[in-house]
Design a protein around this nucleic acid. Structure first.
Lengths: 222, 222
DNA sequence: TAGTGGTCTAGACCACCGG
DNA sequence: CGGTGGTCTAGACCACTAT
């Protein structure tokens, strides 16, 4: 039934901006319950095809968007899944008040102590991803007791700390001296960067820059 | 109620791999209808926190994934939304059999004629994104009649051609001579690339490399 | 095959927001 | 204010799959 409704809309030749019938009418026409239409429309709304507003009704989006879903896995798993040998090395683990840049990412106004952790992930012994992370000790005091030499912060957090909000930013940068040195590439080489910040109920958990060596690709399918 | 359930699970201290009670039991404990639990769990499943299987029950994912939803808009809209002036220039429009690389992206074994379209998108007169695209004339014969000088292929396709599958790949490259020249940047500069391939029912529609000028960021929130 | 989630129904009430 | 979508209920039946 849900698929019937999806097809009815997709092939119904509604143009961008057109208003669809109200759920109740669609339910009548298609001979099904309103809650069924509601579910189907909710799906279409989630996938970005349609926009719904109380009283305003349901409209076909006039500005279609491509919604791609990224899977950002535990780095160790990612490496091992490719059949490579995973390694990881802690570069720094220190406690400090975060710089303004980190505060901004967390949308915080009053600073508190955080843990800064830098680490290198290896694939078959070669540098793979450089991770520069800040962890809020107010939200995750348990992190104080973990040394992150055996298990990476990436893995420990993903396995132990649920989150309710996550911002991601993707971009490219040229390798500076430090990145070039750590990742064993030439200065100026193009590097792919994933920046991720997570919260649990508005409380900041962690923000991380993951800088990948050349050749890294992030894939999705939808 | 749905939020109550979400919180109950998030704070319920279930570890990765743990099995949750069946929907029916949760409904009893939380004093609500099973369909309410079902909806809440469906959400958690969609967001990647939990895995559900008939007869197998609901488990907290042992390999948690960060699901980030990218919005890939029409480039003109993106530029205009920033308050900038949009421009666009067709660089090439030719018909040919696609190279192996393009065939591979489409997962095709037998070649057929396609349209190759290259174009530059401008923001306030400055190069913004370089687009290198192949369009299947078998699937989209209408493209033969469009010259893409007034409306970019990016916009024409998004507005006219629905798709049912979309692969996206994200990575960084260093500007070669040609990219540097077209985008007016120095050779070797880091460029952010979005590669997108779309199908309608297994029939290839288009594959495109969108190469962005330095400073470009792709953002998500979930 | 039995236990679990997936979908649907028919109805109710609520929350938002446009005219 | 009234019309629309958002959420919930209590129940039914179906579809998958682990045991």
């Amino acid at each position: 039934m849900r698929d019937t409704i999806h097809n009815a809309i997709l092939c119904g030749r509604y143009g961008p901006g057109d208003r669809l019938p109200r759920d109740a009418d669609l339910a009548d026409n298609l001979n099904c319950a309103r809650s069924t239409v509601q579910r189907a429309m909710q799906d279409l709304s989630n996938s970005g095809l349609v926009e719904r507003r109380r009283k305003g009704g349901t409209r076909v989006r006039s500005e279609p968007v491509t919604r791609a879903t990224l899977n950002i896995p535990i780095i160790r798993r990612e490496v091992e899944q490719k059949g490579a040998r995973y390694g990881h090395q802690l570069i720094r683990r220190s406690q400090a008040l975060p710089p303004r840049k980190v505060m901004a990412k967390f949308e915080l106004s009053t600073p508190h102590h955080m843990l800064q952790v830098e680490a290198l992930h290896f694939s078959n012994g070669c540098p793979y991803i450089l991770e520069d992370r800040w962890i809020s000790l107010k939200t995750v005091p348990e992190a104080r007791e973990v040394d992150f030499t055996q298990q990476s912060a990436n893995e420990w957090l993903l396995l132990n700390q649920p989150y309710s909000r996550c911002d991601v930013s993707l971009f490219a940068i040229s390798a500076n001296d430090r990145f070039a040195d750590l990742l064993q590439v030439k200065i100026g080489v193009a590097l792919f960067v994933v920046e991720r910040t997570t919260w649990i109920d508005k409380a900041p958990i962690t923000t991380v820059q993951a800088i990948a060596t050349p050749g890294y690709q992030l894939l999705t399918r939808c």
